[in-house]
Simulated assay, not measured.
Amino acid sequence: MNKNLLLAAVSLVAISATAPALAADLAARPYTKAPAMIATVYDWSGFYIGINGGGASAHTTWDQLAPLVGGEGSHNATGGTVGGQVGYRWQSGQWVFGVEGQGNWADFSGDNVSGLTGFTDRSKIDSFGLITGQVGYAWNNVLLYAKGGAAVVGTKNELRAGGVTFASNSDTRWGGTVGAGLEFGFAPNWSVGVEYNHIFLSDKDVTFAGFQTDRIRQDVDMGLVRLNYKFGGPLVARY
């Protein structure tokens, strides 16, 4: 019995002595670093082309210079417009800069009865173009921007009596424009937005049939909905 107890004690001591060595021989579980997060953000850089549509009101004032002198009154020439735009933007950080050309067909028309002659003074804008620069700030796929530049407008002015036009004058007028817009990138390469523009035109002296001259002032307030397609990849990955 004593011999068996002695053997058991020796075995226990041997196991106790080898256990730390066996544990040391086991390889430590390797640590694997989690992959870096990749944030995908919208990139506004590149050429784009699009369409737009909306409405406007052109405030128009007539002042007769000859043969009478005095104010003839004012009216708002209202209506709709549709057209297109093409431009280029480049992005630096969250700032976005751009240039754009826009051309539209329009039908802004209105009239008032002259306080001097009793004739109806009628004005119409049938087209306009804008050449502008842009500066904006982007929150990923949302862009808020301001714009400004030159404007050119095709106008027609008429004198009417009894619903019949007896004198008219058509011309092209130059001016300036300022505006602002909000644009949202809703799909790869596609964005939709809303935009406000104010067009201010220089005064224009207009002669009708060689017998009546009026100084005509016009300013346009316009709201547009725009749809753009941008060439190139709209997304970039940032670590």
Rank of each mutant, 00 (worst) to 15 (best):
W90E: 08
G73K: 02
N169Q: 12
L130I: 05
S109I: 00
G118C: 07
D63S: 13
I131R: 00
T117I: 04
A180K: 00
F97S: 08
L116C: 03
A39L: 11
Q102K: 14
N76S: 13
I131A: 15
F47G: 04
R89Y: 04
F231Q: 07
V192S: 11
F97W: 13
V41P: 00
V206C: 03
A77K: 01
D221L: 07
Q94H: 13
A17C: 10
R29Y: 11
Y88W: 14
G98V: 10
L227A: 15
S170V: 07
N157Y: 11
I131H: 00
Q102T: 13
N169R: 09
N141Q: 11
G71L: 12
T61N: 14
W105Y: 14
D63G: 04
S191C: 03
L22V: 15
N197T: 10
L22W: 08
F119P: 03
V178E: 00
V225T: 10
R238V: 15
G162K: 10
D126A: 06
W105G: 15
F184V: 12
Q218R: 14
G79F: 00
G118H: 08
G53H: 07
F166Q: 06
Q212K: 12
A138N: 03
L116Y: 01
A39K: 14
K156A: 10
A66H: 08
K124F: 02
N140I: 06
Q85L: 13
S11T: 12
D221W: 07
S57G: 15
R89C: 02
R160E: 09
E158W: 06
G71E: 09
L143M: 04
L159P: 06
W139M: 09
D111P: 01
W105K: 09
N141V: 04
V99K: 04
W190Q: 01
K204I: 08
N76V: 00
F108K: 04
F128Y: 11
G70L: 05
G179P: 03
N112I: 02
G80K: 00
S114V: 08
I199H: 01
A237S: 14
I49T: 03
L12Y: 11
S170I: 07
T81A: 12
F97K: 11
G70T: 07
Q212S: 15
Q134D: 03
L7H: 10
P67F: 01
L224K: 13
Y145H: 12
V13Q: 15
A8N: 10
T172L: 10
A9Q: 14
K124Y: 06
T165K: 05
N2S: 15
L227H: 06
K3S: 15
G55I: 05
D214N: 15
V69G: 13
A150G: 13
A106H: 03
T61R: 14
V96G: 01
V153G: 01
G133P: 03
I216H: 01
A34V: 09
A23N: 12
P35R: 08
M222W: 05
G54K: 05
A17T: 12
V152F: 12
Y88R: 02
H59D: 13
T18R: 14
F184K: 01
D126S: 14
D43M: 00
